[in-house]
Design a protein around this nucleic acid. Structure first.
Lengths: 196, 196
DNA sequence: AATATACAAACGAACAGCTGTTAGTTGCAT
DNA sequence: ATGCAACTAACAGCTGTTCGTTTGTATATT
């Protein structure tokens, strides 16, 4: 039985991915060096390669973990029988909650995925496009059902998905309103404005 | 000898800044090398330094050009005597239009300003914070006047300023609605939802 | 209980390539 | 002939990564 586990919980690789997430978020993928990462983990740069294959693998892990979370939640919401406007609201709320609980991961995926290389790059890119089309589809159904105002669905998707990125600033601001208040405000502004 | 061709009324430095803007947008500041930039301009890397002082100077130029444009427009709007909700709408419309006409510049400034170094970094950072507070102030006045719904003003600012970044995706999408349509949709969704 | 074995995981040194930038030189238009 | 703007060559430092080796420790054998 090999002891691969680190002190508290999770494999050493997970520790490395966590540190990479923090580092990529604050310096950007290109500007964060493996030596920086090694220092953050408390180890020499060469030692990292006992646990990972490459720097890019770290970015892959981050990007697809985020993508999977959103796709999975979207499956769940789409399967539920609730009204389309409610589905849109649920998706928005999930994005907001992810930005509270795992914002470094989400931000890194959103900002640095372009640095993936090609089997992964186009995979991620396709998933991203498909995800947006999916949400646009829900909105268009809602418009057809007259639950939702007659607006351009892809535009609503753009607004929603980018608006939640603003929560990054909230994390660093001093006078924070509570997460719940922020969520309710966002939903109020973005969903109430949509209702027919 | 290859020579930098200057447009009818633009210095060679402006040609370089324009190419840098394009390059920084598509590869990111760190990933874009001076040799990449030189190739885009049609010149050897060393030759660039006859016109600029450093790579960072290019980023400074981009960031502060964008910041100045927004600050200036905000002065103008604030000075006009229109209702607060109208001011917010005017600011939103200006952001949208800037994202249509100069989106590479705006995106680079928004995404890469962290790579500035310190006199410029904190200057930019302060301007950014001040700008957001300014808009939040207008919104709060509007709430006090009962023109605007009782929402958290900083949250509205976050949503608005980040939502317009979605226009970057519009630039690369195939089935584009017209700029005017997009603008009207955005205003409809984001401003109508605010009105008291 | 002491020893041997096995193997994960750390290390220092080195690599080849790229980074921004400088120096010195040369060509071209005025 | 003066000077701007291009060139080539080179720099010192950093990049991700590989190599061979050593260390620590959990298990198996004695």
């Amino acid at each position: 039985m090999a002891k691969i586990k680190s002190k508290t919980n999770g494999t050493k690789k997970e520790v490395i991915v966590d540190a990479a997430t923090r580092l990529f978020r604050e310096k950007g993928f290109k500007a964060a060096s493996m030596r920086d990462l090694a220092e953050a983990v408390g180890v020499e740069a060469a030692s990292l390669y006992n646990h990972i294959q490459s720097k890019e693998e770290l970015l892959q892990e981050i990007c697809f973990k985020v993508a999977n979370a959103f796709n999975q939640k979207c499956d769940e919401i789409e399967a539920s029988g609730i009204a389309n406007i409610r589905k849109v609201e649920a998706i928005l709320r999930f994005h907001i909650q992810q930005m509270f609980n795992h914002y470094e991961m989400v931000i890194v995926a959103d900002r640095e995925w372009r640095h993936l290389s090609d089997p992964y790059l186009s995979n991620y890119h396709n998933q991203r496009r498909a995800y947006r089309k999916r949400i646009a589809g829900i909105i268009e159904e809602g418009i057809a059902n007259k639950e939702i105002k007659d607006v351009d669905a892809p535009t609503v998707v753009l607004i929603m998905l980018h608006a939640v990125n603003g929560i990054e600033s909230w994390h660093r601001s001093k006078e924070k309103i509570s997460p719940k208040q922020l969520e309710e405000n966002m939903v109020l502004i973005m969903i109430e404005g949509l209702k027919a």
